[in-house]
Amino acid sequence: MTSKIAMRILTAIVALIFLVSWITRSGSGMSDSAFTNVRDGFLITFAVFLTLSIFSFLYRDNPFYKFAESLYVGISAGYWMSYGFWSTIVGNFVPRASRSLSEFFHVPYQERADHILIYIPIIFGLILLTRLLPKIGWLSRWSLAFIIGATAGLNLTRYLRSDFISQVSNSFIPLFVDWKGAGDFVSHISLAADGQFIAILSNWVIFVGVMCGLVYFFFSKEHKGAFGVASRIGIWILMITFGASFGYTVMGRISLLVGRITFLFGDWLNIL
């Protein structure tokens, strides 16, 4: 009961701030038209309200967040429907499917010898919709089978080069860069980033890292003895990578917040 009263008081305060902001922003509008100023005042206040509603989630779930979330999901779904219709159906499919439909939507018709083939996916698409009819809903599995089969077929061979062959191929690196004997190496040793020592060390780390990383991903052998040692080195290399990626990303993420703070304190409150 107490929380309900507190919620009502909070809602009233938010509504009051909203109104004050709307009036203030409308009054300080740059346009000659009063309607434009009032509209712009409302829009920026509403955008601020939504931003703060989303931030309120950090404290805990609350009605403001729920409202912003529902609105966001609804707007997104509506946007996706419109975008899907205009961009994918009208922009991509209609110009290849029919001349009369292209004329109707004012898009240039693309004459193609194989335009009849576009109707095969349409048949699969229609079959998918049988899912809405319980008695023949099982037919929709044909379309799902097409999607799954096509995806599997594409992935069976298509990414082998980028994910496997190129990675293996690039791992064949010289382990003794510019090697002119141990004496020469010792007499010229230096910690310079572009020096021979660092180059050799880097290549060894890459080679050992790839080897041990692969050992870590062995599923059918127990990670014991030498195999276990290699596997542990593998997981250490993985953790160094994850730590480095994590640390590298921190600053980038904070700059996102700086953008929102600029919006709140600059665009809205005009104090930045």
Partner: peptide, 19 residues
Amino acid sequence: YVTSQQFPFVAAVNGTILR
């Protein structure tokens, strides 16, 4: 189905997690 866009989807799933 929630929506096909990344962040609206996250907003909805986060709400579901907390609720």
